[in-house]
Structure formats: C-alpha cells, structure tokens
Nucleic acid binder design. Structure first.
Length: 468
RNA sequence: GGCGUGAUAGCCAAGUGGUAAGGCACGGGUCUGCAACACCCUUAUCGCCGGUUCAAAUCCGGCUCGCGCCUCCA
C-alpha cells in the first residue's frame, strides 16, 4: 500500500517495521468540550485506514491519546468550579459516545496525559542529561531546539525563517529562553492549577511531550505511522520528532499522515462565525453514518466543505447502498438453490469491484475512489438480481458489499426492528383498500404512515417499508 | 513576507501522458393504480495564457483566484 508521507512529501510504499504488524499513533482531542466535526475527520479517516490494514491481515496496534491537562480544561474547570478531572473525564466519556456512534473503533490503548506524568519526567530528564533541554530559573524546562539538527524536517521549514517570523519575546514572558525557538517541556504551576512534583518545580507537562512519551510507552521508540490533523505538523509534530529522536537516538515515526481541514460553508469553523458544530449537533439531525459517509466521500488530504446541502446528498447516496442491501436481504428470504453457471460468471465479474476498491485503498487510502467501486457494485447488484436468483449467488453478493462497507466502517444493513402493531395494521388495511381498488383510501393511509416516518414500497413480492 | 496547497459538469468528487470514474440534483423514458425503489437515456474537453510531446486535465513556465500553516485550533 502507498502512503503519502509528509516527511518526504511523496507517496511511499508502506513497509512495516515488523512484518504483519502496524504501530500507529493518532493524536487525539483535548477534552474540554464535546468534540466538533473537525475533530471527527481524523478519527474517521484514520479509523478507516486501520480497518483497511486489518482487512489486509495486519495486526494493528492503534494508540490514540486524550489530552486531559491543558489551559482550556483548566479554564472550564474554574468556570464550573470543579476539579479539572471532572471536566476531562466527562468529555472523554462523551467523546467515546460520539466515536461509537460514528463507528470509530476504540483504540488498542487510549492513554491519558495525566496518567503518564512519570514517563514524561523521565524523558525530560533524559533530554536534559543529553544537553537537549535546560531548566530556567523559575523551573520551566525548555527544549533546546537548535540542538536538534534536523529540526524542521517534517514541516520543511528552516530555523532562520522561523526566527524571522518570531514575535516579541517580552509579550509572552518567555525572556528566560536561551533562544526564541525553544519550546516548553515542563511549566511551573499557577495558583489553583493541577500540578505534579518534579525535580525542576511543581508543575505540569507541555503539550508536545505527552505524545512522544505515550507513543514510546505503548508502541516503542520507533513506530510505523503517526497521524493527525494538518495543523499539527507545526509545531506539534515537529516538536515530537525533536523530543523523541533526541531522547531515543533513533527515528521516531516512519510515515507521517495528515488530514486536511473541514470547512463549514466554505469558511473556517469558528465559534465567532457561528458556524461551529459539534458531532452531537449533527448526529441529532442526521444518522451518524451519513456523517461518516460524507467524510469518506473526499480524499483525506483534500480540504472538505461541510454544509446542510452536502449532508443531504450524502444521505441520499448512503441510502442507495442501503436500499441495494435491503433488496438483497429481501430476495434472500425466499431464494434457494445453488449457483448457476451464468451466476458464477456474474459473480466473478462482481469480484472486480472489490479489486477496484482495494486498488483505491492501496493508493494512499483513497476512500472517495473506493466508494465509487461500492456504487458500481451496487449498480451491478441492482441490475443482476431478481426473484429467480439463487440463494448462494445472492448471499455471495451480499457478503461482498457488506465486507466493503465494513472496511469503510459504514453500517448499511437495516436494523431488525419490529413495527408497532398499529402500523402493521395500517399497512394491512391499505393492502385491503388497494385490493378493492380504493386507491383514495390507500393513498391516505400511505400518507398517514409517511407522517409517522414510514415509507412504503409496493413490489411484486409484497409491501416493503423503511424508515424515512 | 516565508513555506505549502488547490482550481474538473448545477453541486460533490476520482483521475499525474493516450481523447474525462462515481455520487447527488435536473430532464426524458421503462416499471407501478399512483408513488417509491430500480433500470435505460441525456449533462463537462478539465481557471487563463504560452511551451514540451505523435499525444496533456495530467509535464514545464507565467498569470488570476481560493485556502492552509508560520500564534499549544483536528
């Protein structure tokens, strides 16, 4: 499989460190609020990446953190007059609910920064011992950026350019830095903030060190894939590389993957613009699978625009897949028999769509292209199955489409659910009316059911229904 | 200013040298009591200019416009 590597700016053939195994780290959210739909993009695309790798037979060790100590969390805790852990634990729980709704598989490990303080202190001490970090007078520990010769290799910046764009030292109160490029590894506590003891001062870790440490602890010093939103390239991931490689003395991640941003109505999502949506907002209005489908309809490295209109289109597209699956299942109820010769030929043709699907996924996880293969399969199914199809043929097609949908994490099977007795009665009453050619009454009942969210379809084999 | 990225039909979106996948929407048709579903048909020469090549949406140069990062925002 080919992966676009931010480090080299090229698509490269993926070769795992250990054959058959993948060590993958995805930067997770800071838990100070419900996650927004921008947070959901990396979760969904890299979950899909993971599902595909597992489909190929890889044993994927997937680690995604929760940043549970941070200025914003502390601010929220102060506002609510509760402990910071109350805030972080609450939003971790909420985030997990959203992830489940979106079919984002739980990570192998979901480490939390506050549970890994010891490891961070160890790595910081190592960096100090090796001359890559230093403690300032007030106990703040900084990374000596210029001591890491390859700094800038991920974001393709050079240090002098960075320095050209620096802001005034005095503004940020960072005048104790040796160099403006240095960044914080450990910062002293302020009144009322959560803090941990350390050799330098009571305080808390900087943001970047947590990922270096958690990645090392759960995946090892050298990992295959490190992923996250493109905004993290600089400075977060650049700093992670500096910390990890300076401390461990070996390459950190072999492949760096970054998803592009999600815009809302062509503008950056922000609270001030009033176009800020949480995942919770959206899944109250739409099936979470529609949001997932929408996210997969574009390449992960392309900017994606979100709007109500596009969600509507996504819903209709997903419904097309679901209808085909429901039809297969409907036909299967009464189908029997072994596959016929001509069906075997058709099935061989249908396998071609799975091959196209794989080829698309092999090419840097091109989910948009993979999805088109699914639609081609759907069309093939709709055109080549009917009441006379054999059960084994129908089942094989059903298995194929469900397998592909599952790699994308899309649930496309209609949930087995029983209709209320009164709705069943209405459907039968309408059938009776149709039999008597009383179409006015039949249409009236159909409308009544539609108002209840039940859509009817009359087929030769009987009446089918589905939720609107 | 530095670095980067993008411009494909009404909308969304694949496609890195050989005469444009797929989806949504629209229109026409078949099926249906009607409808829904489904199927068939119809819809673009790829921002602009120039160049390379037998051949370019795909390569090179210029231009226009959009966007991102350079401020712990995925």
């Amino acid at each position: 499989m080919k992966i676009y590597n931010t480090l080299t700016k090229k698509k490269e053939e993926f070769v795992p460190i250990e054959p058959g195994k993948v060590r993958m780290y995805v930067c997770g959210p800071t838990v100070y609020n419900l996650i927004h739909i921008g947070n959901a993009r990396p979760m969904i695309v890299f979950d899909t990446m993971r599902r595909y790798l597992e489909h190929k037979g890889y044993d994927v060790n997937y680690v995604s953190n929760f940043t549970d100590v941070d200025d914003k969390i502390i601010k929220k805790a102060v506002e609510e007059n509760v402990d910071a852990t109350v805030i972080s634990e609450r939003y971790i729980a909420e985030c997990k609910k959203d992830m489940e709704a979106l079919h984002v598989m739980p990570a192998t490990t979901h480490p939390q920064a506050t549970q890994e303080i010891e490891g961070m202190k160890e790595m910081i001490q190592t960096l100090i011992d090796k001359g890559h970090a230093y403690a300032a007078a007030d106990g703040t520990v900084y990374f000596r950026t210029r001591s890491f010769k390859e700094y800038g290799k991920l974001s393709h910046k050079n240090l002098d350019e960075l320095e050209g764009g620096k802001r005034s030292l005095l503004v940020s109160g960072e005048d104790q830095k040796e160099d403006p490029l240095d960044f914080v590894l450990w910062k002293p506590k302020k009144e009322g903030e959560p803090a941990w003891e350390s050799p330098w001062c009571d305080g808390r870790p900087g943001w970047h060190i947590e990922c270096s440490v958690m990645s090392k602890k759960y995946l090892g010093e050298e990992i295959d894939i490190h992923a996250g939103g493109e905004d993290l390239v600089f400075p977060h991931h650049e700093n992670e590389i500096a910390q990890s490689e300076a401390a461990n003395g070996k390459p950190f991640a072999h492949y760096w993957m970054h998803n592009a941003f999600l815009n809302i109505d062509n503008r950056k999502m922000s609270k001030s613009l009033g176009n800020f949506f949480t995942v919770r907002d959206i899944i109250e209005k739409y099936d979470p699978m529609v949001l997932r489908f929408f996210m997969l309809s574009a390449h992960y490295r392309s900017q994606l625009n979100f709007s109500a209109e596009l969600m509507e289109a996504a819903k209709n597209g997903l419904d097309r897949i679901r209808t085909a699956v429901a039809n297969l299942q409907f036909l299967l109820q009464s189908a029997a028999g072994e596959m016929r010769v001509e069906e075997e030929a058709l099935l061989a043709e249908a396998k071609g769509f799975a091959d196209s699907f794989d080829a698309a996924m092999e090419d840097d996880c091109n989910t948009a292209d993979a999805l088109s293969a699914v639609f081609e399969l759907v069309k093939f199914i709709n055109s080549n199955t009917n009441e006379s199809s054999s059960g084994t043929f129908l089942q094989a097609l059903l298995d194929e489409v469900l397998t592909l949908a599952d790699i994308l994490g899309l649930a496309v099977e209609k949930k087995e659910e029983l209709l209320d007795a009164d709705i069943e009665a209405l459907i039968e009453k309408r059938q009776a009316a149709r039999k008597e050619k009383n179409f006015a009454l039949a249409d009236q009942i159909r409308q009544e059911l539609l108002d209840k969210g039940i859509v009817l379809e009359d087929t030769r084999e009987g009446v089918k229904w589905k939720r609107a």
